[in-house]
Amino acid sequence: MFLLYVIIPIGQSIWISFYDWDGLGAAKWIGLRNYIDLLDDDSFYTSLKNNVWWLVLYLLAIPAGLAIALFLNQTVTGIRLYKSLFFFPFVISQVVVGLIFSWFYAPDFGLLPRILGFFTGSETAILADERYATFGIIAAGLWPQIAYCMILYLTGLNNINPEQVEAARMDNAKGFAMLWHIVIPQLRPATFIALVVTVIGALRSFDLVSIMTAGGPYGSTRVLSYFMYEQSLSEYGTAMGYGAAIAVVLFAIMLVFISLFITRMLMQERNG
């Protein structure tokens, strides 16, 4: 199954990237031409820059998820209700998240423009402004991603060794010292999984871009996955070879991060 649905399609994508092909007719071998064209394509650099923004800002989900998990890992009145509210974004689809935030940003009836208008005197159409649109979409993506990291950390907090915590308390460790030296080291497995999933989610972001802006305005919110779709699979694009070249570049970037994560994990296991 892994060979059929993962390895072989990866090999086919790499092979197609060396052809000029519209997906229907005969494919023409052009070698590295698609990759050379990528280097001269401003849309490719815009997509790559946006992917970097996604990667950098998406990492905020990890400390935010940890903070919420620490808050929810308490025995207080109504804690189950709070957990349900924070868990809610994780169980709804990305399409629903995109629609919710599109309404939230809508200049006619959205809540955010009304708030901005109240304090600044002018409403801003977030998704129609190329300066802010990408960051608006990333904010929408952070909502469910923080919930996912929160779940991972809640699971990790339930598995913390209570003996270490008690020993630290006997040594007068509390507050930030307790968190930094006792709690966070025991949350390394959860942090590792959260980091891997967050990085991969940032690099393959597609759903929210498609739902909220379709790459606009003026192509300013494109990411590599959506740029690939535009070039090869959308109603305007039939350049399967060029789209495959974009997919190969995205795969290479993800492969670098995944290789680093796996190498680090193997080193930790050997040291352990």
Rank of each mutant, 00 (worst) to 15 (best):
N50L: 10
Q12A: 13
Y242N: 05
G23V: 04
V256E: 11
I10Q: 09
I79M: 11
L59R: 06
F88G: 01
I258R: 04
V196M: 15
L81R: 06
G219L: 13
N50G: 09
I79N: 03
H181M: 14
I211V: 15
G237V: 03
Q231M: 15
P162M: 13
V91E: 09
R222I: 09
S13F: 02
T198R: 03
L24R: 12
G219H: 13
M267I: 11
L127M: 04
A190K: 06
D40F: 15
T191L: 15
P107M: 03
L154G: 01
F90W: 05
G11M: 14
M254R: 07
S234P: 02
D40I: 11
F104A: 09
L203Y: 05
M170T: 13
F227E: 07
Y132E: 02
K83C: 03
Q12I: 15
L154H: 03
E235S: 13
G216Q: 05
N161Q: 00
A69D: 03
I7D: 10
N73Q: 08
L266D: 12
D171S: 07
V52F: 13
G65E: 00
G201Y: 02
R169T: 07
I7F: 15
M150L: 06
Q231Y: 08
A106I: 10
L260H: 08
L81Y: 08
F88Y: 04
D40L: 13
Q186W: 10
A177T: 10
A194H: 04
A128P: 00
E230M: 07
W103P: 00
A61Q: 01
Y58L: 05
W103E: 02
M178L: 15
K174E: 08
G215P: 00
I14L: 15
L203G: 10
G11D: 11
I30F: 06
Y105L: 00
M228G: 01
W29K: 11
L59D: 06
Q164M: 15
G121S: 07
Q164T: 12
E166R: 05
V199D: 10
L116C: 05
N158V: 08
G156D: 05
V223L: 12
D41T: 11
A26Y: 10
A168N: 06
S13K: 04
F71T: 04
G243N: 01
T191Q: 13
I137H: 01
A67Q: 05
D40K: 13
T198W: 02
G216A: 11
F44S: 08
F119M: 00
V196W: 10
L208E: 04
W15D: 15
M212Q: 03
T191A: 14
V6G: 09
Y82C: 14
S232F: 01
K83F: 07
G241F: 04
R222G: 06
L72D: 06
D129P: 09
V196R: 07
F90L: 07
A27G: 14
E130V: 03
F104Y: 07
V96R: 01
D207Q: 03
N159M: 12
